[in-house]
Design a protein around this nucleic acid. Structure first.
Lengths: 162, 162
DNA sequence: AAGATAGGTCAGCAAGACTGACGCATTGAC
DNA sequence: GTCAATGCGTCAGTCTTGCTGACCTATCTT
């Protein structure tokens, strides 16, 4: 469990004023990112739930469709999870016929991942409501908005400064 | 478990071409949102881990600091989780002295939530690296970028069209 | 032949979401 | 004044999706 927040009773004093960032911190943007992402994944979540899948399956289906022929190692790198975590959902997707594995053409240890037609269809179905949401958020301002948002989100990534 | 993806063997055909959105679907933005959000929450995650807390604690601390005096019901609405899920993390935060509850002044059934000084400090500490990341992503382009991004993220929210 | 690599798998743990049920204090309507 | 509704807490159990550590096979590299 967590440590007690310091013995000094002053630390326990109640704070009644709203936390605003001032010049310092952009709480508005921080919050908005939380709300936007929460709602953004809610659409596919609902679709997946009906099929007995979860978010983890979504990610796998998405990236395999975006990069057909990627190896398991590639996928692990992209998702940044352990192979044991991946194994569970990947196995379910293979058993259900959404993804299949082919032996690597040069290196036969590799399992190249490809979507089936059903897998491609699923990926598209999941992307559609998300795309609609994005279109709504841009609503007519695509021209000035998309490039800016792309730049911003790219810069938010870990290696995104170059 | 999940249903088999249709008996038709054509559904099992391997698809080898990369899924691109064409005019239809903005996969680039969809992916970028995933990567950006993943890295965005990784900074506070690391800090929280050392204190024995998780993401759920972050959200609670954040919103209580942003809206001191909010009720438990308000918080449930904001986070969109069940009270049983909230109860666990809230209790830990109260026990650790980061948040405290005061009886509602009008309605004594309510528990108004306030941060302690330690709670305020924690919220700020968690926000700092996120704010730094945002600043980096904007790097000198704050002027044209912030309003656009704010508009975009606002539009991504469920009620965000008005 | 030996070691490194790609991948699969078993077993167990934890966080954080969920459901359903129930208890207690307080409020508000009748 | 009684009683239902409300705000909140809590017990018990489930599920997904992360994690660790250990160990196995097949294949490639040296």
């Amino acid at each position: 469990m967590a440590a007690m927040a310091d013995g000094k009773s002053s630390e326990q004093e109640i704070v009644r004023d709203r936390m605003t960032g001032g010049e310092e911190i952009d709480f508005e943007l921080i919050e908005l990112l939380f709300f936007a992402y929460r709602d953004f994944i809610s659409d596919p979540d609902a679709i997946l739930f009906k099929k007995g899948f979860g978010r983890a399956h979504h990610r796998v289906v998405h990236f395999v469709n975006r990069n057909p022929g990627m190896t398991v190692a590639d996928l692990l790198e992209t998702l940044r999870i352990t192979k044991q975590s991946l194994a569970r959902v990947l196995k379910q997707l293979i058993d259900s016929g959404y993804i299949c594995q082919l032996e690597g053409p040069e290196d036969r240890r590799q399992r190249r991942l490809y979507p089936t037609k059903a897998g491609r269809a699923l990926a598209l179905e999941l992307a559609k409501p998300q795309s609609r949401r994005i279109a709504k958020a841009m609503s007519g301002r695509e021209k000035d908005m998309r490039e800016t948002v792309l730049g911003f989100l790219g810069g938010m990534r870990d290696g995104g400064d170059k």
